[in-house]
């Protein structure tokens, strides 16, 4: 595995495709995060809120996206992590995580990060500044 520090402008981390989203993933996240908003776990509540079905917590997907950087935490840490939530994630969706170098400095490397669904639509997009 290449060191993060050696990645050049335009290069990317290996993409990661998640298993299709299951209700149990969201129940586990609700418990672990303390976010028990029922639109993430109970169909009837999601429908009451005008949704076609339960949707993933935005923070579940954001939490997953950060794991692209976990193998590199021996080199440094995530100093900045900013995300704009752009689309909903439903049960059965297949999410792919991506990160590409957008800026390279001595002390840090900046990445454009995104989570994309099976239709190729961004559900999350933002930036990570990885500090050395």
């Amino acid at each position: 595995m290449k060191q993060l520090k050696d990645l050049q402008l335009g290069e990317s981390l290996s993409e990661m495709e998640l298993a299709p989203v299951e209700r149990l993933d969201l129940i586990k996240y609700a418990g672990a995060s303390g976010d028990f908003n029922p639109i993430h776990t109970i169909d009837a509540e999601a429908e009451k809120a005008g949704l076609p079905g339960i949707i993933a917590h935005g923070m579940w997907t954001m939490g997953n996206l950060a794991k692209l950087f976990t193998p590199y935490l021996s080199e440094g840490f995530i100093q900045d992590y900013s995300i704009r939530f752009r689309g909903m994630v439903f049960i059965g969706d297949v999410i792919t995580l991506k990160a590409a170098v957008s800026e390279k400095q001595q002390e840090y490397t900046k990445f454009t990060v995104q989570a994309v669904n099976q239709q190729g639509k961004d559900v999350l997009k933002g930036d990570v500044v990885f500090s050395f």
């Binding site: 993933d25 586990k28 672990a32 579940w60 939490g63 950060a66 976990t70 193998p71 935490l73 021996s74």
Partner: peptide, 25 residues
């Protein structure tokens, strides 16, 4: 709580969970 959270986001890295790995980091 960290273990439960790391597992819930599919990121059970030894750096988060394993005491020995933490000590050696």
């Amino acid at each position: 709580a960290v273990r439960k959270f790391a597992e819930a986001i599919g990121d059970p890295s030894p750096l988060f969970l394993d005491e020995q790995a933490g000590k050696e980091s």
